[in-house]
Design a protein around this nucleic acid. Structure first.
Lengths: 159, 159
DNA sequence: CCATTTAGTTTCATTATAAAACCACACTGA
DNA sequence: TCAGTGTGGTTTTATAATGAAACTAAATGG
């Protein structure tokens, strides 16, 4: 289909989705978190068509979220690994996962548990935290546009 | 295009994306967070085609993320509002926003600031928090599959 | 009661995805 | 070293999701 790009929108959510909002992007990134690196691994575990995987990996690479490197085991094949920018998507993945566990639970319970490696203690529901690190209820959350953003919205509304 | 459904995957991220992973879904939910409720509001502010908006709102409504209710101002039109399930997507939106602010920043700075309504204090970078409420570095995060999930993965691998 | 707004639906063109076939190169074992 | 298999794609074709525009019917406002 035709597809409207979000990249020019003055909204950080939109610009993020422009990179990772495609149908398979998050799934690929998720599997990269699990340690997958090879084309075939992604392809078989996700059941994605090879041409689509090829296109998504190209997008993710160009966006600086993944990087194609020579195989660290010495073969002449390549590996796709997450960059720092890619690893930083982890909070998004965790939020998606915790929402799914809560609202579309699997019969046999949460398939994956997150743990603090040091303490071995399970990672709690994240929600939204204040500077104290406490979860705040959604009624207590407000937002404020920056002056620059306000101006852009005004201009748009004037059309 | 044809599109593979994620709904049956034993992965909470996949099942979540099956509902909100479509091109415009998050954007609609985001604008609902901002207080938009009317068909025309979404349509004009997002610049989305009306038939697509219609389809997405139908999906979101059937998924229980939004709800169509009679206009609370008394007119005979309708409003689309977030359900509890929908409001609970806020952590995902915040994670997307904070990633965008960090890695694809807008020239004029972050367009939107999140605040604690009570204290007026800005909401910090969320990251991933332990039970103490402290951000943990990504090296300290591990994951563990549930026995049920392991079994499913084994079965799939055996094919 | 007329003009405009709202909330869609319908139609048609375009393009992303899917599935399958195809291909070149790398590796492996005998 | 040579055959057979594995890897990482590309190409081709079909289909369905998106996008744009025209159209409709009811609601609203004056």
């Amino acid at each position: 289909m035709k597809r409207t790009s979000f990249s020019e929108m003055p909204c950080s959510v939109a610009r993020t989705l422009d990179h990772v909002g495609h149908w398979w992007s998050f799934m690929i990134v998720r599997n990269a978190f699990y340690g997958q690196t090879r084309f075939r691994e992604f392809q078989e575990s996700l059941g994605i068509a090879k041409n689509i995987l090829s296109a998504r990996l190209k997008d993710l690479t160009e966006a600086g979220i993944m990087k194609k490197i020579p195989d660290r085991n010495g073969s002449k094949y390549s590996e796709y690994i997450l960059t720092e920018k890619g690893w930083d998507l982890q909070p998004v993945l965790v939020a998606l996962m915790q929402w799914g566990d809560k609202w579309e639970p699997h019969e046999s319970g949460p398939p994956l548990e997150l743990l603090d490696k040091r303490s071995g203690i399970s990672i709690p529901y994240q929600g939204i935290r204040n500077t104290e690190g406490d979860v705040i209820p959604r009624e207590e959350l407000t937002s404020r546009f920056s002056p620059a953003a306000k101006e852009m919205l005004m201009k748009k509304a004037a059309e």
